[in-house]
Computed example of a mutant assay.
Amino acid sequence: MQRQGRTPLTRLLDPTAVRELAGRLDLRPTKQRGQNFVTDANTVRRIVQLAGVRSDDVVLEIGPGLGSLTLALLEVADRVVAIEIDHLLADALGDTVAARAPEHRDRLDVVEADAMAVTELPHPPTIVVANLPYNVSVPVLLHLLARFDSWRRGLVMVQSEVADRLAAGPGSKIYGIPSVKMAWYAATSQVGSVPPRVFWPVPNVDSGLVAIERRDPPTTSATRDQVFAVVDAAFAQRRKMLRSALSGLAGSSAAASTALEAAGVDPTARGEVCTVQDFARIAEQLHGS
């Protein structure tokens, strides 16, 4: 939904503009920070549309980079809060928006920080839309879900393999720790893919778009940390039966079997068949709840 009376920006970043900006900043993208910048205006507008960004939204963007997605978000959203760890990029983002969309500059907040360390924001976000750095996408996403409960919707672009894992369900070979921990917070689904050619530098992998809809966590007397400890143990060695995988937490294989049976889970099953609700019940039994 586009804000009434607002005309769409015509100065989104294209390949030439991205390279000019990078050259002006003497920027050398690093793999360490997962820096791959979108160079295609249609791609960022598609992301904004699929995310369902509304005119009253406060968008939290992680890793805005040179501002490709930021500019597209500002066409629609009421405000964008962008967290950028790279001082050079954080310092330049406001100038880029002022030059290419001066009427929107006052609705951008740039937070120079490591997203994993951010505990406060200038405005509570209602939605997260981000091209997440490949190397830290899952921990960043889980941190944002744990720390900021004001946002109820999101759409993130991540490495295709990560997108598969985030959206996987029980019984799948790729279902694992990211799948279960995401399910604690939200329902996730893959809503599209993005080819490498729309990035600079061009990555050697495809990207996937994952939609996120918050929901209440399972009703349980166990804490989130207790449940996540069970999840971590269950998948530490995927081929182990749960009674063996959880023996360390329970104190013995026999104690683990007793807890699993009380939780209604087959002790000879493996973690990949368990739902997040199953893990919550297991945690309750292990902690005597």
Rank of each mutant, 00 (worst) to 15 (best):
A254Q: 13
R238H: 13
G192D: 06
M241E: 13
G154F: 08
V97Q: 08
W184N: 10
A92V: 13
Q2D: 13
R19I: 09
V265L: 02
A92M: 11
P139L: 00
P196V: 00
Q2H: 10
P8I: 09
N131P: 10
S207Q: 03
D86M: 15
L141M: 03
K173M: 11
T7K: 05
I85V: 15
N204D: 14
V58S: 09
V44K: 01
L88S: 15
S160E: 03
P139Y: 11
T39L: 07
D109N: 01
F235R: 09
L144P: 14
E261N: 08
V44P: 02
A283R: 12
D164H: 12
H104V: 14
L141F: 07
V191K: 00
R215V: 08
L142W: 12
S289M: 02
R238A: 12
D216I: 15
E272G: 05
L155R: 05
A280N: 01
S68E: 11
V140M: 10
T119N: 10
E120S: 05
K181C: 04
L13S: 04
E75G: 10
V162I: 10
V231T: 01
I47T: 09
A41M: 03
V180D: 00
R54F: 05
S244C: 11
V128K: 00
S221K: 11
D91G: 13
S207D: 02
G271Q: 03
P201E: 08
K240H: 06
T223G: 07
R6F: 14
G94V: 10
A163Q: 02
Q32S: 10
W151P: 05
K173W: 15
S207G: 03
D14E: 10
D86S: 14
E112G: 07
A17E: 14
A113H: 07
H143T: 01
S252M: 02
V48E: 00
A263E: 05
G94W: 06
R105E: 13
S55I: 06
A115H: 05
A233S: 13
P125M: 02
A130K: 00
A82Q: 02
V205D: 05
M182T: 02
L166C: 04
Q277I: 09
V227A: 00
A113Y: 04
M182W: 06
S244Y: 12
V162E: 01
L93H: 04
R54G: 15
D216F: 15
L60S: 04
I127F: 07
L66M: 14
V18W: 08
A117S: 11
A51H: 02
R270Y: 09
Y185S: 01
A222F: 10
A269Y: 14
T275I: 09
L132R: 03
R152N: 15
M241F: 06
V140N: 12
F37Q: 07
Q159A: 01
Q277F: 07
Q4T: 14
G264T: 11
R105K: 12
V210W: 00
L13F: 13
G271A: 04
L249T: 15
E20N: 08
G192R: 05
A168K: 05
Q32W: 06
D164K: 01
K31W: 01
T275H: 14
V210P: 01
T70C: 14
D149A: 11
G192Y: 00
S137C: 03
S247K: 12
A280K: 07
R19S: 04
V194N: 00
G264N: 08
R281A: 07
E61A: 06
I127V: 15
